[in-house]
Design a protein around this nucleic acid. Structure first.
Lengths: 214, 214
DNA sequence: GCAGTTGTTGTACGACTGTCCAACAAGCTT
DNA sequence: AAGCTTGTTGGACAGTCGTACAACAACTGC
């Protein structure tokens, strides 16, 4: 007998709070992508993360808070992808703007898998003031970046706000429809390339109008 | 003793199937508006409609089918409101287009109460092929009407498709943000009037570009 | 090696979900 | 007035939901 108490592997591993939080958020994003809003529950997330269901409650006040944190994380990923696309576009202002909208309709941003995260979050905005505030902040940040890019292109300051709202809405609307109707499934659907071309042509129209008339 | 069997009012009233269907759909719309997506259940809808919960299953295959029917009905209402706005705008093509976008941001279309119906529907699109088809059809109809209005304005046929996609996305994006951030609650939020002005200025840019360049 | 800390487990709990169906009754037909 | 059709009821059903909590165990510091 070499060992009276057979040494078995640990039943679980401890994690640093931040790492575990990140794990749970990533698991939530995967479940939302795979199962959709309706199939996303505390238990499904716990299984996906390989932890006990009780742990979710230990790190997040509730399922709503977890969804909100997941939205914040996904939006952060999107922001980084957009910044990276703008950075590689070089110094030309218009090229940077084009890179911004093109990236908005390319993976990993334009992916039907992200849609459930957005709809789940939107469902909470109207009933939860704290989540409404989170939405406002993230929307404001998104619009501010677009305003900066438009300012670089020489758009007069007086038109910046409306132009940024317009392009944000245009990109959001195209992105939403792109996620809802992936090309190939429906005969009328437009492709990511088309969405980019459309957004760029609206940018053309807005910027040239601004220059000739303002 | 006037009556051995006291005559009591009927315990319930029968309805024509179509009328009852319409009642249930209207009740679903109200519950979605009041309680949000999360609070919308078969029982809540039955209470709102003043019927027994079992009746819901008698008329609709499931809660998903009822949500889809509610979406179809609300979108029909929206379409009629848009048509009415265009009709009263008179014969001038550009005035008709302006009326279209202005109405898109006015009651009863731009109302936060409608948002839950849309998010609930969007949540079903990716997992239910039949609902995806319904979305494609209603989106195509929406875009077709916009194409007709743009054609009246003299936009060349080659640019009609992209212009209609652009304006549809722009209006959708503005509408969504308008519902998510009612002006007054957030300092940066834009108003319905602003949304209309923004959409009309993009129309200006698109149409004038089309005329001068092609 | 032995506490002490605390991340983690697993389950119990009550409330709620969607679906189903046998019994009932409203209103039309005869 | 009696019968029939069928819209309607109301509860049963199995399942899932989110949350709470006592017990357990992995790791830290001693």
């Amino acid at each position: 007998m070499s060992n009276a108490t057979p040494l078995r592997p640990p039943a679980f591993r401890r994690s640093e709070p931040d790492a575990r939080r990140a794990d749970l958020i990533a698991a939530t994003a995967r479940v939302l992508a795979r199962e959709g809003t309706g199939g996303t529950s505390v238990r499904a997330i716990a299984v996906e993360a390989g932890v006990s269901p009780g742990l979710v409650g230990h790190y997040f006040a509730g399922i709503d808070a977890l969804v909100a944190a997941t939205y914040a994380h996904v939006e952060h990923t999107v922001s980084e992808a957009l910044d990276a696309a703008v950075a590689v576009a070089g110094p030309n202002p218009r090229a940077r703007l084009d890179a911004f909208v093109t990236a908005s309709f390319s993976p990993p941003i334009a992916s039907g898998e992200l849609l459930a995260t957005w709809t789940a979050f939107w469902s909470l905005v109207r009933s939860r003031p704290d989540i409404a505030r989170q939405h406002d902040e993230q929307y404001a940040a998104f619009r501010a970046r677009l305003e900066a890019l438009l300012a670089e292109c020489g758009l007069p300051a007086a038109r910046l706000r409306h132009a940024a709202i317009a392009i944000t809405a245009l990109v959001d609307g195209l992105w939403l429809e792109l996620c809802l109707s992936p090309v190939g499934l429906s005969p009328e659907a437009f492709s990511a390339d088309e969405a980019g071309a459309i957004a760029r042509s609206v940018l053309d129209a807005l910027i040239s109008t601004g220059r000739s008339a303002g």
